[in-house]
Amino acid sequence: MKYALYYHDYCPFCQRVLMTLPSFRVKVEKRNVMENPEFRKQQQAATGRTTVPCLLIENGDSQEWMYESSDIIAYLKGL
């Protein structure tokens, strides 16, 4: 499985998730949507939304997009 967090620096909910990432056992790629507009376009094309934070969970050809900082933290903590 691969994980990518869509975020931007000025979002307090994003910061909440970012601060917890080092405590998890899985590697999460960070995708700053303000620094790279392609990340925002990818998210919008896949979900119809540009809300951050958003965790992309890839399992082979399957993708799941998870919103809400508390849900993302709880999910990653459970891995």
Score class of each variant (00 low, 15 high):
residue 41 K to L: 13
residue 38 E to A: 15
residue 49 R to P: 03
residue 63 Q to P: 02
residue 40 R to N: 09
residue 71 D to M: 06
residue 53 P to E: 07
residue 25 R to D: 09
residue 6 Y to L: 03
residue 13 F to Q: 11
residue 29 E to Y: 01
residue 25 R to K: 12
residue 36 N to V: 08
residue 58 E to L: 06
residue 38 E to N: 08
residue 17 V to F: 08
residue 27 K to F: 15
residue 17 V to W: 01
residue 40 R to Y: 06
residue 79 L to T: 10
residue 30 K to N: 02
residue 10 Y to T: 06
residue 65 W to P: 00
residue 35 E to Q: 15
residue 54 C to I: 00
residue 9 D to Y: 04
residue 76 L to M: 02
residue 37 P to I: 05
residue 45 A to P: 05
residue 3 Y to A: 02
residue 60 G to F: 04
residue 67 Y to R: 01
residue 44 Q to P: 08
residue 78 G to R: 09
residue 45 A to L: 13
residue 33 V to R: 03
residue 38 E to V: 07
residue 46 A to H: 13
residue 70 S to N: 05
residue 24 F to E: 10
residue 68 E to F: 05
residue 31 R to K: 13
residue 40 R to V: 10
residue 76 L to H: 07
residue 67 Y to L: 11
residue 56 L to K: 15
residue 76 L to P: 01
residue 25 R to L: 08
residue 68 E to Y: 06
residue 36 N to A: 04
residue 72 I to K: 01
residue 72 I to H: 01
residue 78 G to Q: 12
residue 56 L to V: 03
residue 35 E to Y: 14
residue 30 K to L: 14
residue 44 Q to N: 12
residue 48 G to E: 11
residue 41 K to A: 11
residue 28 V to Q: 00
residue 62 S to K: 13
residue 56 L to T: 03
residue 71 D to W: 00
residue 71 D to G: 00
residue 38 E to L: 12
residue 14 C to M: 03
residue 64 E to I: 15
residue 3 Y to G: 03
residue 64 E to S: 11
residue 33 V to M: 00
residue 72 I to C: 01
residue 40 R to D: 06
residue 60 G to T: 10
residue 77 K to H: 13
residue 9 D to V: 02
residue 2 K to N: 15
